Simulated assay, not measured.
Amino acid sequence: MSNKITFIGAGNMASAIFGGLISSGYSPSLITATSPVQAELDSVRQRFGIHTSSDNLSAAADADIIVLAVKPQIMQQVCEPLAAVLQQRSERPLIISIAAGAQVATLDHWLGGRHAIVRTMPNTPALVGAGATGMFASAEVSPAQRAAAEQLLGAVGIVEWVSDETLINAVTAISGSGPAYFFLFLTAMTDAGVNLGLPRDTARRLALQTGLGAAQMALASEHSTEQLMRNVMSPKGTTERAIATFEDKQLRQIVQDAMDACAQRAEEMQSEFGC
């Protein structure tokens, strides 16, 4: 891919994505990031060697791909001025949104209509190259543009496409917000270890490494996570008793309720932000 890419926004997630692209061999000369904050522009220019600008319109004028990387609360005020510039172009750029709650039809309306748009839901582990991103493409997105979007987000982790835009809310519930669930569980494991007598640093390192190791085993294994769990359990053993306690306390239902609440809130946000 040798497209000219403009990121409208130069915050942490945008930096993670163009940093991942550059690490995979993409030329910094093809990347521009915009921001109204000069210190932010200075930082990314020094770190990554990319072009920077405080002018969204000029930066978007000849971009092949425009990544909307701003908060949903200001998405409308960012998009509407871009419409006049984009509508004058004979070849429309691919628009990629990484903002929560911003629906394809609304983005297209704000940008003047008839755009190829990919809506994505990345997550914070993208900051360390271990992200999981859900993606939905509008009907206007060509196979080549779809491949370009996949390469762009794939630079910071795995990519999974969904066929229905409403499923982005489910993606939010499982991977978008999911890192926080694991952080909560790891915190609880650490605290429990301390209560059992371990030094906090020891308990924390054991919990974190166990979480990492379990995920790596699951990714490498041909077995389901349910089977991997059973493999650790011996009849009348320690793990069996711990798992029985989780089951008695309805852990699975707690997780379902939490993810239902997350997906519902994601849907609500679309209306609140006008997206």
Rank of each mutant, 00 (worst) to 15 (best):
I96S: 04
A63N: 06
Q103P: 00
I95D: 02
Q77I: 05
A84L: 10
V78I: 14
R92T: 13
E91N: 11
L94F: 04
H115A: 04
L94R: 10
A105D: 15
R92W: 01
V118G: 00
A116E: 06
S97P: 04
C79N: 07
A84D: 15
V104C: 15
V67C: 12
G101D: 00
R119E: 00
A130H: 14
G112K: 12
S97L: 01
P72V: 12
Q88R: 11
S90R: 07
V104W: 07
D62M: 03
L82S: 05
Q73E: 10
A105L: 09
P81N: 10
L107Y: 09
H109S: 13
R92D: 04
T124V: 15
I65Q: 10
V118M: 01
D108A: 06
P125R: 15
G112L: 13
I98V: 15
Q73R: 11
Q77K: 08
Q88S: 13
D108V: 08
A132D: 01
R119A: 05
I74Q: 09
A84P: 07
E91R: 11
I95N: 02
A84F: 04
Q88G: 08
R92N: 07
E91V: 15
V128E: 06
A63I: 02
P125T: 15
L86E: 11
L82D: 04
T124H: 13
G131L: 05
V128A: 12
L94K: 07
M121P: 03
Q76R: 13
I117P: 01
V128S: 12
A132E: 03
A102L: 14
I66R: 11
I95H: 03
A126Q: 06
A69M: 11
T124Q: 14
E80C: 04
N123C: 14
A84N: 10
E80Y: 00
R92I: 06
S90T: 12
A63L: 06
A102R: 11
A83K: 10
R114C: 12
I65P: 07
D62N: 14
V78R: 09
S90I: 04
A99G: 10
